[in-house]
């Protein structure tokens, strides 16, 4: 299935995994596209070349629907469903861009931005940074409020570090550890503003059940989980934000 869909086009993330149902034809922004039944609208849009912005979705993981960036309009339906969790239907007509969608997406992205260290916005090249750029969101309307900027960095693992200040709690790491690796070492502890990514029983990664497969690092869209080798000098073996 993947080979048919992907070819060797490495850079495309279809957003949700492929399915193998019988073909369903629909329209995305007036582009007609056929995908197997059970596929998401997000995947169909990517196939139609109308990629929908997203943060919590990636085609290696089952859809989750938490980031609320991939909203769409479906003709004849109410509201603005998430395209990652909306299955395709025969004859469906989807809009991926509209003034309302843009307003909603910007609002969501600004909320993420309000709890992301401002000094880390310029020069960033993570999926999160690229999404902000693509959507033209550079600042937020919320100002300085409660944030996680002073969270302690976990640099216990020799190969990667976890900086909770940059975590957008999209659960991609949690799902990658479960679905892709099958180790179930990561979870989200706490609720609401207190919710955070923890390894095992809130242990440093090195001491947890983590097997360092790198699936979580690969999945992280915001460089909260990131390879130490990408830093030069002292950051290679990770220092705290103030150091």
């Amino acid at each position: 299935m993947w080979s048919e869909l992907r070819g060797l086009k490495d850079e495309i993330d279809f957003g949700t995994p492929p399915r193998d149902g019988s073909p369903v034809t629909l329209e995305i922004d007036d582009v007609t596209v056929s995908v197997p039944a059970g596929s998401s609208v997000m995947l169909a849009a990517a196939k139609a070349g109308r990629n929908i912005p997203k943060l919590c979705a990636t085609d290696m993981l089952e859809p989750f629907g938490s980031c609320r960036v991939c909203l769409i309009e479906v003709e004849g339906r109410n509201g603005y469903p998430a395209s990652c969790t909306t299955p395709v239907a025969e004859g469906m007509s989807v809009r991926t861009q509209s003034p309302t969608l843009q307003r909603l997406r910007h609002g969501v992205l600004e909320l993420y931005l309000s709890d992301f260290p401002p000094s880390e916005i310029p020069d960033g090249w993570s999926e999160f940074h690229e999404t902000l750029k693509a959507e033209g969101v550079a600042e937020n309307r919320y100002g300085a409020g409660c944030n996680h900027f002073d969270s302690e960095i976990d640099a216990s693992n020799p190969y990667f570090l976890f900086d909770p200040a940059k975590c957008i709690v999209c659960s991609r790491c949690v799902r990658a550890c479960a679905e892709v690796q099958g180790t179930f070492a990561i979870t989200i502890a706490g609720r609401s503003f207190e919710s955070k990514v923890v390894a095992s029983q809130d242990q440093p990664f090195f001491e947890s059940e983590c097997v360092s497969c790198g699936a979580c690092v690969q999945a992280c869209p915001s460089h909260a989980l990131v390879e130490k080798s990408l830093f030069e000098g002292e950051y290679r073996h990770a220092q705290s934000a103030e150091a």
Binding site: W2, S3, L8, K9, D10, M60, Y159, S212, C213
Partner: peptide
């Protein structure tokens, strides 16, 4: 590599790190 047909974008501690 996501297109790697043996691993489909997954890895382990040895190869990755």
């Amino acid at each position: 590599w996501k297109e790697g047909k043996a691993n489909h974008g997954h890895s382990c501690i040895k190869g990755r790190f």
